[in-house]
Design a protein around this nucleic acid. Structure first.
Length: 410
DNA sequence: TCTGGGGTCCTAGGACCC
DNA sequence: TCTGGGGTCCTAGGACCC
């Protein structure tokens, strides 16, 4: 224990916190349904593989990415749940709000993580309090790390999961980095880990101990930045507010089997556009640029982009921009396996007054507000554009009717 | 694993200009 | 122009993260 009278500005010239959910999706399910507590619980995602699992499931040998049928064989008593991202997002919003009670500098890094910067005299006491509040109010446990940089705070929060509370004051870095393999450091992926291993660097401490000139000579800027952060020099800022704003919205889908059918490929593309626009509207965002790609069975990409006539989140406007590009892009002798779309140049939707006079925009907005309302009431994608009908074979037929800007709708 | 889906950032190299 | 050395802007794609 350090003497309580010690001046903490020496130990934390900057106090960066990282808060990280423990088995987050699975924990949320347990918080919602307490009878699951203590049981092996798995949240399954696409195509029936585990995307999150409780520590009880982990203890029985279940791992992320394991197919559901295999999990059931391994552990018949396991509870498998489909996953409810909207609910997890609600818990995440409450998590951010709790951390904001202690500082306004909060970066919403992902659905189960945030960074924050503290300016208090005793940051170690504050992080204990944050962690206790999260546990008490959400019923979900978080691991919390405190250090002098973002990269070190990440090391700290990961150091003792679950329910870990690890503080790395200035000067104590080495003891925490010595057992961390270099590939586990935030920002070092497989390619760089391999390169470092070939150079004889295996742990985070060995990387941090390299002389600066070697790092600058052998690596690009991102890894020089990491090296500096591991050595306690703050490079990465905590991005709160506008800086943290989302810059693009993407929707991509691989289809099986791959196809040469032009109408079908276009239908998938329209479906992706619908999805991206729906999410943009849900977040009150509008986009200025459209990017899309067609991906062949050989993983060759053809990319296209267009600037939209104005900032918009109207599906019809985006489809209208995409259609002529698609017509030119599509090749009849290529086998396609996926399409994807990205809306970029994203900004919050401007108010009615600023749009005053733009009748087209007003009407489009109105139409899609209706679409979203119907979606909320009857399930997303109850209404959709006629071209994407191709991908909905097998869906029960509904009476169809026509709406302005949407064309034929079912 | 024969290769999911949603994001961000950086860099190498070509085109173009002086 | 038989051609040196820059800047700048753009794009394709790599690398990484959750």
């Amino acid at each position: 224990m350090r003497a309580v009278t010690k001046d903490l500005s020496d130990t934390y010239p900057r106090a960066i916190v990282h808060v990280d959910g423990d088995a987050f999706f699975a924990s949320c399910e347990v918080a919602k349904n307490p009878t699951l507590r203590g049981k092996p619980v798995v949240v399954g995602g696409l195509r029936g593989i585990a995307v999150a699992l409780t520590y009880e499931a982990k203890a029985r040998g279940v791992v992320r990415g394991m197919p559901v049928f295999q999990i059931k064989k391994l552990c018949p008593e396991v509870v498998i749940l489909p996953g409810n991202y909207e609910f997890y997002d609600q818990i995440a919003q409450r998590m951010y709000a709790i951390v904001r009670r202690y500082t306004s500098e909060v970066e919403e890094y992902s659905i189960d993580e945030c960074f924050a910067e503290l300016y208090d005299a005793d940051p170690e006491m504050i992080v204990r309090s944050i962690q206790a509040d999260l546990m008490a109010e959400l019923g979900v446990s978080f691991s919390v790390g405190l250090a002098t940089t973002k990269v070190l705070a990440k090391v700290a929060s990961k150091f003792k999961k679950p329910k870990g509370l690890v503080c790395i004051p200035q000067g104590a870095e080495a003891q925490y980095l010595t057992d961390v393999s270099v590939g586990k450091v935030w920002g070092i992926g497989p390619a760089t880990a391999q390169k470092l291993n070939r150079a004889g660097v295996r742990t985070a401490l060995e990387f941090a101990a390299l002389p600066e000139w070697r790092v600058r000579e052998g690596f690009a800027k991102p890894h020089v930045d990491l090296w500096r952060e591991l050595n306690g020099e703050p490079v990465f800022a905590v991005h709160s507010g506008k800086q943290g704003m989302q810059k693009s919205i993407a929707a991509t889908r691989t289809f099986r089997p791959p196809t040469k059918d032009k109408a079908l490929v276009f239908a998938y593309l329209v479906k992706n556009i619908e999805e991206a626009c729906r999410r943009a509207r849900a977040h009150g965002l509008e986009a200025r640029h459209l990017f899309f790609f067609l991906k062949s069975q050989e993983f060759q990409y053809r990319r296209f982009e267009a600037t939209l006539v104005r900032h918009t989140s109207a599906t019809s406007a985006v489809v209208a921009a995409a259609r002529p590009l698609f017509e030119r892009a599509f090749s009849t002798d290529v086998l396609y396996r996926a399409t994807g779309v990205t809306l970029s140049g994203v900004q919050p939707k401007i108010g009615q007054s600023a749009l005053f006079g733009d009748i087209d925009a007003e009407r489009e907005n109105l139409v899609f507000e209706t679409v979203d309302q119907v979606g909320r009431q009857f399930g997303a994608h109850t209404l959709f554009l006629a071209p994407s009908l191709e991908v909905r074979k097998g869906v029960t037929e509904k009476p169809h009717f026509t709406l302005p800007y949407l064309g034929e709708v079912r």
